[in-house]
Amino acid sequence: MRVISSPRVSEQAVLAALRDAFGAPSLRTAPTPGQFVVDLPGGGDVIHYPAVLPHADVYSVKVSPYLPDPAGPAVVTAWTMLVSLSTGQPLALLDASKLTVERTAATTVLATDLLLPPGARTAAVIGYGRVGRAHARYLRHLRPGMTVRAFSPKGVDEADDGVQAAANLEDAVTGADLVMLCTSAADDVIDPRALPAGTVVTSISTNAPGAREIPPAAVEALDVYVDALTTLQVAADLTRAAADGWDPAAVRGDLAGLVAGRAQGPSGERPVYFRSVGLGIEDAAVAWAALYNDNAMTKGQSR
């Protein structure tokens, strides 16, 4: 089994891997597995992200421990293992810390590219840490003509990747065709109901209990899409909206449906909301792409 501690993969390869994974015919008949959590004695937990990647003939699972430390910051790691479905043997173990950032941003941008009209011109990124910067980077890859504004309470370095720093949240969002929420907030960041019809809002939120970035009361006024239907059981804003009377059957489509062209497009009458929580199929696809890249580099070096 190969252990890859510093996996590398290009934006183009990540996007291609996710398109292939979400476009797989198997997703039409079998639901995309969600994540599940195992609580640890004394605090902390381990989140598991399982998936099958049929075209690669592999099973994948990413494990991400959260280990509190009373003396300092919690320990958070992530590792993805790929197992051959032909031999049952492990093929590779990859450090997934950076890969998780890549797949999170690429999933959002892949969805928004399918939800935005061709003429969309301006995007706002709210929250500009590693994940926010990755969102901007992937958006530039798929929509190079779009202007990207960013706002973060910690400030935005425009030289970092050419984004325009917004003075405040309102300046960032006003007039934007796309608003990508990339915060670690535990409560509402914006209310999409205040945005024009057709504006696309995305949210990744965090795994903290009850964390959300929009008000649950806003959900019924939006055209809602999700990365997978299992997200309806996990995302705090959607579960709370359902508890308050919103019908989850109103979801217009998931990412597999968008990629395959089966999902209905936005109505044009309301803001659009894409909610993702992170899926094992994303981790599997990106890990497989990184393993392929590592094999190619190793082969090239051995010549």
Results as ranks from 00 to 15, higher is better:
L110Q: 09
A120R: 13
L139H: 08
L110M: 15
A124I: 13
M146G: 01
L115T: 09
D113L: 13
G129W: 00
P117A: 10
A123C: 14
R143E: 13
A120W: 10
H135E: 05
G132W: 06
R121I: 01
T122D: 14
P117W: 14
L110I: 05
R133V: 04
G129E: 00
G119L: 06
G145L: 05
P144C: 09
A123P: 15
P144V: 12
A136N: 07
I126G: 03
A124E: 09
A136E: 09
G129T: 01
Y128T: 00
T122L: 13
Y138G: 11
G129M: 03
D113C: 15
R137Q: 10
L115F: 08
R121L: 03
R137V: 07
H135T: 15
A106N: 01
M146H: 02
A111E: 01
D113Q: 14
R121T: 10
T112A: 13
A111H: 00
Y128K: 01
A123H: 13
I126N: 04
L139N: 03
V109K: 02
A124R: 10
Y128L: 03
P144L: 07
A120H: 08
Y138H: 13
L116K: 14
G129S: 04
V109M: 13
T108P: 09
V109W: 02
L110Y: 15
T112S: 09
L115H: 08
V109Q: 09
A120N: 11
P144N: 10
L115R: 00
A124L: 14
H141S: 06
L115G: 04
